[in-house]
Computed example of a mutant assay.
Amino acid sequence: MATRETLTQLRKRVENCLGQKVLLKTNKGRKKVFVKEGILEEVYPSIFVVRIDRGLSSERKVSYSYSDILTETVEITLCNNDRKIQAS
């Protein structure tokens, strides 16, 4: 069971990557997995926001909660050194 300390530690790990390019692997269920590349733009107490550039001056912001990482619905990998942000 995830505790408040686990979520706090996870938030700090995500916060340390603020402004960096990340690779998001999102599990949408029924064998649907989406992989997107973006920049970790904002960190809030309950969620974090990633800006995804879709080309042709079109960008999108997606937000996820820290519990999405805990439940492995979202997997974040830093693009510059292939280090994953995981719950431990």
Rank of each mutant, 00 (worst) to 15 (best):
R11H: 07
E59R: 15
K28G: 03
N81C: 12
K25P: 01
R54N: 13
S58A: 13
V14W: 04
T77Y: 03
K36F: 13
I52R: 09
F48Y: 10
G29W: 13
Y64F: 15
S57R: 14
S88T: 10
S63E: 08
E75L: 13
T6Q: 08
S58D: 09
R83P: 02
N16Y: 02
G38N: 03
R30W: 08
I47R: 03
F34L: 12
R60I: 14
T77C: 07
V14M: 02
D68V: 00
R54E: 15
T8N: 08
L70T: 09
E72M: 07
N27C: 06
S63F: 12
K32W: 05
I69L: 13
T73S: 07
G29Q: 08
Q86M: 10
T6V: 09
Y64N: 08
T6F: 04
R60T: 12
C79F: 08
V33L: 11
L56F: 10
L40D: 06
K28C: 07
Q20K: 14
R4C: 01
S65V: 00
I76F: 02
R4P: 05
E75M: 13
S67R: 11
T8L: 11
K84W: 00
L10T: 03
V74Y: 02
R83T: 14
I85C: 09
T6W: 01
I47L: 07
Y66S: 04
R4M: 08
R11C: 01
Q86H: 04
N27F: 13
L70F: 12
V35Y: 04
V50P: 01
V43T: 09
S46M: 04
K28T: 00
S67C: 00
L78E: 12
I47M: 04
V74S: 02
K31H: 09
L7E: 04
T3N: 10
D82C: 01
K12V: 09
L18N: 03
V33K: 10
V35F: 05
R51H: 08
S57M: 15
G19P: 02
E41Y: 14
A87H: 10
T26L: 15
R30K: 14
L18C: 01
R51F: 05
Y66V: 00
V43Y: 02
T71S: 10
V50F: 05
G29K: 07
G19H: 06
Q86D: 02
G29C: 09
T8M: 09
T6E: 08
G19M: 01
S63L: 09
V50D: 01
L10D: 01
G38S: 06
L24T: 06
M1H: 15
R51T: 12
S58Y: 12
V22N: 08
S67A: 04
L23W: 07
Y44T: 03
Y44I: 00
I52L: 13
F48H: 01
T71G: 03
S88Q: 06
K21V: 10
L18W: 05
D53A: 11
D68N: 12
G55I: 07
S65P: 00
K61I: 11
K21A: 14
L24Q: 05
V49D: 03
L24M: 15
I85S: 01
T8D: 07
G38W: 04
G55F: 03
G19I: 05
G29I: 11
L24N: 05
C17V: 06
K36A: 15
K12L: 07
I76W: 00
R54A: 07
K84R: 14
S46H: 11
